[in-house]
């Protein structure tokens, strides 16, 4: 019969309409500003810098690997120097241009010090599209506790790895090649 297909289709629509009141599978939307779906733990959006105790003592050692590997080149780093002009293992400037960053997380993957991680925050409203989206070191710094709060599984793994590395460094080497081998960075 001509038109049977149409009627069958309408029956499906009716089933979905009624089903959406009872079946969570058919009703998948939420009223966004009032109800917010918790972010999935692995969700990544914009990097932040991890510190352990104080915000001005970042894990970052300004090795500039992420600056070099960043595909859209949105990271800018200047290493800190002390009074004698010797380089210190801290960044003086660490800027990320959030208008350029594409949240690919390659900086996180290449960082050998677990100093840069991906955030869950995705709303950065600003009335200045140039300076307002240029995040500096202090804006990017987040505590390790915050890292634990957004990504408990990954943060626990990172902490265990870092603790193992510290323990390995603290243990005296069986055949010390150099007098202060323990102070040298593990290559």
């Amino acid at each position: 019969m001509f038109g049977l297909g149409l009627i069958k289709g309408l029956a499906v629509t009716a089933r979905n309409l009624i089903g959406s009141y009872f079946d969570r599978e058919r009703m998948t939307t939420v009223c966004y500003p009032e109800e917010i779906r918790p972010p999935i733990e692995n969700f990544r959006n914009f990097p932040f810098l991890v510190y352990d105790e104080r915000p001005d003592d970042l894990r970052c050692v300004a090795c500039k690997i992420c600056e070099k590997e960043c595909p859209p080149q949105c990271i800018f780093i200047i290493q800190r120097r002390d009074d004698q002009g010797r380089p210190v293992k801290q960044p003086e400037v660490f800027d990320i241009d959030l208008s350029v960053c594409m949240s690919c997380a390659i900086c996180v993957e290449v960082c050998p010090f677990d100093a840069i991680k991906m955030d869950h925050k995705f709303d950065y409203p600003s009335d200045n599209r140039f300076r307002g989206l240029l995040a500096d070191k202090m804006q990017l710094a987040r505590s390790n506790a915050y890292y634990h709060s957004i990504r408990p599984t990954e943060a626990a793994e990172v902490d265990a790895r870092l603790a193992a590395e510290t323990a390995k460094k603290a243990k005296p080497a069986p055949l010390p090649a150099k007098p202060n081998a323990s102070a040298a960075p593990s290559a």
Binding site: T28, I40, N42, F43, R44, A105, I106
Partner: peptide
């Protein structure tokens, strides 16, 4: 959307999985 949720869980992003 159900499949994209899985992608987000394994890669961190819904569409730009990398």
């Amino acid at each position: 959307e159900k499949i994209l949720d899985v992608f987000e869980e394994i890669s961190g992003a819904r569409m730009m999985c990398n």
